[in-house]
Nucleic acid binder design. Structure first.
Lengths: 327, 327
DNA sequence: CCTCTTTTCGGAACCGGTTCCACTACATGA
DNA sequence: TCATGTAGTGGAACCGGTTCCGAAAAGAGG
């Protein structure tokens, strides 16, 4: 591997001259031409680690994702990437694999790499992690969860629940079923449900509740059981994947959507377009989330962590498709 | 940020002693205890860049992915990650965003970062990129494309085409339609189709061909046109997403799958489970691909690039679901 | 108590860059 | 002609670690 020192020797100049040539450029025309030629021939590329070491920090930004195959995360990543690419910031993406311990390890890994900031897609935050975040000298931005005194970026989950309930009400439904998940997931399990209940009850509708898991296949099995029994005319699934499972089950049971039953999800994943009829859902602005967070990172990199809002909420909007209809 | 030097001063010992304490450990009991305490209190973590600089290489492996929201890529990544995590190798994932120029830039970026090896998910390879790969002193492993004299890992696309055709023949179909993509994509556009044709024609079946694009929605539109006209009883779509588009269109047109028409895809994505009936497909071993490539990387890291096979082909297998039936 | 071996430790060089400082050479203006 | 300014350059220190080498200290054996 050819180094700056090698180049300097070949050109019979000092390291500093070569470095100056590569950076600012107070170099004479003659040496510039000489170096042009040598750098060209050798294909010299500066060692990024040596540069970062001298600068005592790297030009990278760390990202901790929960897992690779999450469509929402990937859309957020696209948004992050678009801004990062534009600003010439290199991302260092690490996978926590839905493991809290691995999340903590990844934070310290990124700290050792001296990244400029960390974007953390948090699913669960325990006390230890909260402490690690708070005591970090390196700015850590949270996506999808909020934490006191840390810049957090979340979706309007409570609002989303309200929007869907209002839609059901508007379509004339009064017997509703909310198919949700465990309350240990605050955004999905608590907020969406609460928003839904609040609007439904305010309008005098009855709401049943059934708990299922996040997987499509489990929800499908569950739906095969509860669909024949329920009196509801409108089912609000807490995620699009759950909705897909229910959609599959109703196809199997020859229950027609939307004629006999209306069905909606949350998320706005493209999977809702994969079934027919397409599923009404609440669109979450994943891509925009990425852009927003990354722009904030750029700001933090330039100005430090002062004057940064603690909480940024991104708006959601209703996406009406063929799966919901008037009663 | 507390450095090794700081620790040394606090403990009244030399840098080398602290370094030895952190690594091998030929250190007396007394100083060990003293350092234990100080490291504990300060939360000292060695600077990864300084370590890499000294070692003249980092302990990372670079990965270049085509884009973030590719389900197949993400499954391969999970496989790569599982091995990397086990071997304590840090991944540096970069996004080429389906851009050839960005792919080239990413390679040189990873080279400047002195990663131990690069895993490249190649879609397209032009002469310049081929040269860049060949002239790299750093091992570059290719996934999904093959290149002479470079370790390449591919799927059995030709074989997959044969398998699907054989399945159609076995089910008694003789009027076949292959819905494919442009031949500029060698694996999907050429190999799958060729395998399909070879087996079909050997068995005296007729094969129509229609070209579409990779997107589900475009294939859906196309299918609305060609489904009413075709005489085929079996449609082989060149990807699962195309198959989903066709499935949606046939639902819209009230053409019953599999009673009136059999339909299959390629890929084995979970989306084929999202529609009802589930779609027969050829499973591609994405996760295993990741494991296989990463194991090879580990080998290359340990033994260098000698005795590495140029080409590794991973087997595919038929996954029969409800969308195909006897005629 | 004195050798001999082993353990423990500090000094210095090094990895590959960047940057400050001082020095030279030459041009500019008075 | 001489002071002053400026572009171009090299030397040296530094970023934060690792490692080689030799010296000092500690322990073993006679």
């Amino acid at each position: 591997m050819v180094t700056l020192n090698d180049i300097a020797k070949m050109a019979n100049v000092s390291k500093s001259t070569v470095s100056r040539y590569l950076n600012n450029g107070s170099v004479s025309q003659k040496t510039k031409e000489k170096l042009d030629k040598i750098v060209q021939e050798t294909g010299y590329q500066p060692n990024a680690m040596a540069q970062s070491l001298k600068a005592t920090k790297s030009s990278m930004v760390g990202v901790i994702i929960p897992r690779y195959d999450s469509p929402s995360t990937n859309q957020v990543l696209q948004g992050i990437d678009s801004v990062a690419y534009e600003k010439d910031i290199q991302l260092m993406i690490t996978n926590a694999n839905l493991d809290l311990e691995r999340t903590k390890k990844n934070i310290s890994l990124l700290q050792r790499q001296k990244v400029g900031a960390i974007i953390l897609f948090a699913t669960e935050i325990d006390d230890e992690l909260a402490n690690q975040i708070k005591s970090s000298k390196m700015p850590i931005l949270l996506v999808g969860q909020k934490l006191e005194n840390s810049p957090s970026f979340i979706y309007q989950d409570y609002e989303a629940g309200k929007i869907i309930a209002q839609h059901a009400i508007d379509k004339g439904h009064r017997k509703l079923l909310f198919v949700g998940v465990t309350e240990s997931d605050y955004a999905v399990g608590v907020l969406r449900k609460k928003g839904f209940y609040d609007v439904a009850e305010r309008n005098g509708a009855s709401v049943e509740f059934i708990e299922t898991g996040f997987s499509r296949s489990y929800s499908y099995e569950k739906a095969l059981e509860f669909l024949p029994k329920t009196a509801a005319t409108y089912i609000a699934a807490a995620t699009d994947h759950i909705a897909i499972g229910i959609s599959n089950a109703s196809a199997e049971l020859k229950i027609s959507i939307p004629d006999e039953l209306s069905l909606s999800g949350f998320g706005g994943y493209s999977v809702t377009q994969n079934v027919f009829p397409h599923i009404t859902t609440v669109n979450y602005p994943f891509y925009k989330m990425g852009e927003t967070v990354m722009k904030k990172v750029v700001q933090v990199l330039n100005q430090g962590t002062e004057n940064i809002d603690d909480l940024t909420e991104l708006q959601v909007d209703l996406n009406i498709q063929g799966s919901t209809n008037k009663i």
